[in-house]
């Protein structure tokens, strides 16, 4: 059979075209996942060639570790607050960007910026913004008299120490992460908004519904499939993210105030050399993310699409 004929056969061509993806999935996703699974039941470390299975020892050790429990709690706080803020802010932004006004292109450009810059670089910019001594935010607050005077609203010290106080550090990490997720969420929201026929919104207007009633009774229910996709993606990005935390605080200030699962797994497994415990920590992602995916896909399927 000539090569030409061979390429016309679906039974040959289909596997051929799919094979790069399949190879990629097996090597880059399947293999590391299997390794993590095996490691989490072993005693493997970076420096020691000794390898034998230890059963659930790593999991009990991890669950007993107060830092792990704190990281798990922090991850949920980080994820829920980030996603909540992203949903509210992307709703506001898409309302703004679907209206006509001067300099709209400028606003759109500025909002899309975080998307184009590498996350680590953007976050380094924030590192300077939130610096304990040279923060321009603190300078502004001092200029406005909100900081650094005896009876100032934010206290008499000359700096806020954004990344040095537990609550403020968590807030900073969340805000930077929201800044990074917002463009994608806004774009998805605008695309969804454009798919709602204008007459339906006008009908609601004529039927007497004010802005919030239209939003909660008409627009959001119709956007539900789109919003659930946003939530799915944002949750995946947020739950597994360590870039923002690692660049800004490395899990600090003490004691592990902004430590999340991803950064803690990295700290334990790579920096601490205990691969087995790092793998065990990472495996805690799996049930949570699988659960989120299942729930969101169910909502998307149930929702009526026009």
């Amino acid at each position: 059979m000539s090569t030409r004929r061979l390429f016309e056969r679906e039974t040959f061509l289909a596997p051929l075209l799919l094979s790069p993806v399949a190879v990629y999935m097996v090597l880059m996703v399947g293999f590391p996942f299997a390794m993590a699974f095996v490691y989490s039941f072993s005693n493997v470390t970076v420096g020691n060639p000794d390898f034998h299975m230890t059963g659930f020892g790593n999991f009990t050790a991890v669950l007993g570790d107060p830092v792990f429990r704190k990281s798990l709690l922090n991850t949920f706080i980080f994820t829920f607050i980030s996603i909540g803020l992203v949903l509210i802010l992307s709703n506001m932004l898409s309302e703004l960007l679907t209206r006509q006004f001067r300099a709209k292109w400028l606003i759109r450009f500025l909002i899309m910026m975080p998307w184009t810059a590498p996350i680590a670089l953007g976050t380094i910019g924030y590192l300077w913004f939130l610096d304990s001594v040279f923060s321009p935010l603190d300078w502004l607050l001092r200029t406005w008299g909100l900081l650094g005077k005896p009876h100032a609203l934010l206290g008499p010290m000359s700096n806020m120490y954004w990344l040095g106080q537990p609550g403020l550090a968590m807030a900073s990490v969340i805000l930077v992460h929201v800044w990074r997720l917002l463009p994608l969420a806004t774009m998805i929201r605008i695309a969804g908004m454009n798919s709602i026929p204008r007459e339906i919104i006008e009908a609601a207007q004529v039927d007497g519904a004010g802005y919030y009633r239209r939003l909660f009774h008409i627009v959001l229910p119709l956007l539900l499939p789109v919003i659930s996709v946003t939530v799915l993606f944002s949750t995946l990005f947020t739950f597994t993210d360590m870039t923002v935390v690692w660049v800004l605080t490395k899990g600090g200030p003490p004691d592990h105030s902004t430590q999340v699962l991803a950064s803690f797994a990295f700290l334990k497994g790579i920096q601490g050399g205990d691969l087995a415990q790092g793998a065990a920590i990472s495996l805690f992602f799996f049930p949570v993310l699988a659960g989120v995916a299942a729930v969101v896909l169910r909502i998307a399927k149930k929702a009526v699409v026009t």
Partner: peptide, 18 residues
């Protein structure tokens, strides 16, 4: 629109699909 005491039937009917 809601304060004018009018009602409107749209060309596409604009029923709320959900």
């Amino acid at each position: 629109p809601r304060e004018r005491g009018i009602a409107m039937v749209f060309q596409s009917y604009a029923l709320y699909p959900h």
